[in-house]
Amino acid sequence: MNSKTQNKIAIGTLYGVAGLVVLILLALLGYILVSGLPQLSWHFLTAPAKAFLKGGGVGVQLYNSFYLLILAMLISFPIALGAAIYLYEYARDNWVTTTIRTAIEILSSLPSVVVGLFGFLFFVVKLRLGFSILSGAFALTFFNLPLLTRSIEDSLRTIDLSQREGGLALGLSRWETITRVILPAAVPSILTGVILSAGRVFGEAAALIYTAGQSAPALDFTDWNPFNISSPLNPMRPAETLAVHIWKINSEGIMPDAKAISSGSSAVLVLAILLFNFAARYLGKRLYKRLTSA
């Protein structure tokens, strides 16, 4: 066989494999959207769920998903940013940093149900936070931290070493160089990483089942006092998210339209994550453009 035929076969195989992956993904996406989109309506997106009757919506679950996402990001982003800055900008390569990196890697491959059970034992039981948004947010932080740290570290790595030297040569301290030169330049890439990890967090169910709980008490969207149990802002209330809702309906839903609600919820979830991804690309590109050719 000459190298030309060999090359053709290799390319053909690669095209085939890539095509198969795309096909599977499109089929999945298509199935979810085709069966879910007809269920979507303003009522479905805003109404509270019903346990026994048909016609319930996912308004509370949808809100819970966003609220939990924001809380989890508020907790995990500063920690991940600090860790990434330490690891990439300050730490020398020695056994301490090797240990940290290994720990991060192990943590990132931890099954999310294990994170959930750990969160249940530690936050819900030990710290007496109960099934609550806060417990859920902490569990999601554990789930999110390793990958976010990695992604921010990668963002810092894309900024050339000469930028750091440029800052130092002007008499800036290392901290000033990082905060005034490196971070602003890395913002587009960091933002992309944050939004992509937000998509993962948004779709997470296993880590939340035993931490944020599986019930969604009715919320009073006129009550914004975070200490009231029916207030949407109360972080101590149990809060079923959209992803958990899908899991629950499919395993023990007894409403007559369970299948339709599950399909509709899945479509909403997929659309939200698609939106995150497009937003990440768009914002990242725009910010980069503003920085490079304003």
Binding site: S162, E165, G167, G171
Partner: peptide, 21 residues
Amino acid sequence: VYEMRRRVGMVFQRPNPFAKS
């Protein structure tokens, strides 16, 4: 050392303008 580097400035081999105006 930061004050000293303001007195002894440096320009590098590869131009390294910051991602700023």
